[in-house]
């Protein structure tokens, strides 16, 4: 019997998967232009909505008009990256059965999806630049101090990984049931509402706020955004980032458990 030797880890195939994903996304140029166009339109719309609301009502404490416009614009820019389901190819491959051929290749399958998803997200991230330029024509975006920006960046990265884990787990449910879109959309909508992408969580009734800040959805959008606009001050950075980190650890562990159970199902039962 030949001795099973685990081949040494090579980064190259994963870089290649990432590049392929970027090229694949770039193929759909009509999609690219429409997403940038829609981004601009939505910012314009949101500006009109907030301006109308602030014109006739007293400004809520701590969030004057320029802060809320900044909040909305940054939320939309973050959405360019966070709203991408970068693991959807897992669902597709489970659906048509082609996942089996990935298991036959000398690669780590979860890493493959991570590389593929990162490539996809990087392409979408490149759209931030033109979108930001457009956004600056429509609204004034406040730029906070260097320290705040650094905290925001860290919080955003944590939020991205939380989002990746949520997408990964959702797509993994396709190991057991092929109909996952309804659940995915339910989660997306809950994220938009309860994560503070649409309306800052501080506008919710106070009793609800405490519950919302403890949910993983807030870890994706709300925490980085509130850091950006200064609602979460430097004294609360540690606790805010800490909650995000806890969610990341919990969801990452859940991802590993679910992936193991799911892939065993493929290997043992043949899908």
């Amino acid at each position: 019997m030949a001795l099973a030797v685990r081949p040494p880890f090579r980064l190259e195939p994963y870089l290649e998967f990432g590049k392929k994903a970027i090229a694949r996304e770039a193929t759909y140029r009509f999609d690219v232009f429409t997403s940038i166009g829609s981004f601009a339109l939505r910012i314009y719309l949101l500006r009109m909505v907030w301006v109308a609301l602030y014109a006739r009502n007293a400004a809520p404490h701590g969030l004057p008009l320029h802060a809320i416009l900044t909040y909305s614009a940054v939320a939309l820019l973050m959405g360019l990256v966070l709203d991408v389901d970068q693991v959807s190819s897992l669902y597709t491959k489970l659906h048509d059965g082609s996942i089996v051929s990935d298991f036959m290749r000398p690669i780590s399958v979860p890493l493959y999806f991570f590389a593929d998803g990162t490539g996809e997200v990087l392409f979408h991230a490149s759209l931030i630049v033109p979108s930001l330029v457009l956004a600056l024509f429509i609204v004034h975006i406040d730029v906070p101090s260097g320290g705040t920006l650094a905290a925001f960046a860290l919080s955003f990265v944590l939020g991205y990984f939380v989002g990746f884990c949520i997408n990964f787990i959702l797509n993994c449910t396709a190991f057991w049931t092929l109909e996952i879109h309804a659940v995915q959309l339910i989660v997306t909508w809950l994220t938009d509402l309860l994560g503070g992408e649409l309306v800052p969580l501080v506008f919710f009734p106070v009793a609800l706020q405490h519950a919302l800040f403890a949910l993983p959805f807030a870890a994706m959008f709300s925490t980085p955004l509130l850091i950006y606009v200064g609602e979460i001050g430097p004294d609360r950075y540690a606790s805010a980032l800490g909650i995000q980190a806890i969610w990341l650890v919990v969801l990452a562990l859940a991802s590993v458990v679910i992936w193991r159970a799911g892939s065993r199902r493929i290997v043992v039962q043949g899908g």
Partner: peptide
């Protein structure tokens, strides 16, 4: 072919 080709094809 390639990444640059894919980006160029956008325009």
């Amino acid at each position: 072919p390639g990444l640059s080709g894919a980006f160029a094809a956008l325009f």
